[in-house]
Write a protein that binds this DNA or RNA. Structure first.
Lengths: 229, 229
DNA sequence: GCGCCGCTTAAGCGTTTCATAAGGCGCCTG
DNA sequence: CAGGCGCCTTATGAAACGCTTAAGCGGCGC
């Protein structure tokens, strides 16, 4: 998936709403995750007990406050899989309870896929133990802690979007990142952006770096080669 | 664990709520801390007097304002163990009281486990570095014991919020601190959308210092440079 | 109770950043 | 070789972001 790991990351998606569930599943699969979508608390709990998942994406909006019970139950059973909780904005108390009950992070609906992806990467990194919030590729060095980018020993000032784009590319250094995938992780599921926004962004990023490191693969997307030339 | 220590760190968790207590204990154990979970003020006070703990995690939401009394009592008895206080969002006064009573740091509920871990590491580092509770950065000096701030040799009167903000920035001097991170540590996770409280706070702090030392990084957050030019 | 103080919210303003549109260039295909 | 398609580049208006000032609110001391 991209944060230094080579193996597949398996995500358990617990969401009762069909439309949202479908959308999330698609978005996550596009980000190269393996997704198991479960629609109710009972099967979710069973799946968590199996400990086959690397991360659980749990919707607390399940009917009957089912979600929290699942979480509490699983924790009590000794399941230590990182859990990212999704809550509606109005459900303030449930959000609080969620964190209390043992969630590792939470996300308020509605949210951007960009945000979700960032949280998932963060949780995965933390789980893996390495505080690796730095990526080095060739002459490029990107620090997500300080949001600083150094290129050929020179600090480069990037805007938020540029930073996000570069991060997405560097996390997948050496691999092609599909245009669609980039657009999704930069903008949202909404996807209301025009079709050349990405190109313009790439262009402005290239001007701040150089015009070689970000390569285009015609018809597919972009990539940063791991071994320059 | 990551903050340079090799020995075990023993944390005293004082929390009456069963679910939250369980969750915290598990989370801390997962971070390789040794946790003793106590459910009431009396036993907590006794345990603090033993001085076997390296750090105390104290919930001020205990019934009957028990928590504050425990803290005051322990300090009066000469216990110098670092205390991290957890307060509910509404309990603003109790938070203030907590700091007055001798807490070393506070956390507004609800919070991310990640945030808690960061505070604990910070407290541990501070405790171990014999310079105990003072941070010096450039012309700035901040003393958490006396809550005094000296800037260019001149004592500056700060409010509690301003102090907390400056502390968060100075603890990460030279690194950018994300806006979201600042908001979380100042207000807890429940910040309402569309508020610019942080900017106003930064402004008032700048007026008491100067308009250069606190730098803004557009789209990301704020920072205080370690080596001011 | 009155006024002060600290905090939050709101609104105005300048600056930066971004999405869009539109023209140009190169590559591939027919 | 002509045309289409995908990408690059530039310009421009709109939105986002941050700074500042002012007003409202509650707590606390007088």
């Amino acid at each position: 998936m991209g944060d230094g790991s080579c193996r597949f990351v398996h995500i358990l998606l617990v969401e009762d709403d069909v439309r949202l569930g479908e959308a999330l599943q698609r978005a996550l699969q596009r980000l190269s995750y393996t997704v198991s979508w479960l629609r109710d608390g009972r099967t979710a709990l069973a799946a968590m007990r199996d400990r086959t998942a690397d991360l659980v994406l749990l919707d607390l909006g399940l009917p009957g406050r089912d979600g929290i019970d699942v979480l509490v139950e699983a924790r009590r059973a000794g399941v230590e899989t990182p859990v990212l909780v999704m809550t509606a904005r109005d459900g303030l108390s449930s959000r609080v309870d969620g964190l209390d009950a043992g969630a590792d992070d939470y996300l308020v609906k509605p949210f951007h896929v960009e945000e979700l992806a960032a949280r998932i990467r963060s949780l995965n990194r933390r789980m893996r133990g390495l505080a690796a919030n730095r990526i080095d590729v060739g002459m490029l060095s990107l620090d997500m802690g300080t949001s600083r980018v150094v290129f050929r020993g020179r600090t480069v000032d990037l805007t938020r979007r540029e930073f996000a784009l570069l991060q997405a590319l560097m996390e997948n250094a050496g691999r092609l990142v599909r245009r669609e995938s980039l657009e999704n992780s930069l903008y949202g599921l909404d996807h209301v952006v025009g079709n050349n926004a990405l190109e313009v962004l790439v262009h402005s990023l290239r001007r701040k770096l150089d015009h070689e490191t970000i390569r285009n693969v015609r018809g597919f997307g972009y990539m940063i080669p791991r071994d320059p030339k």
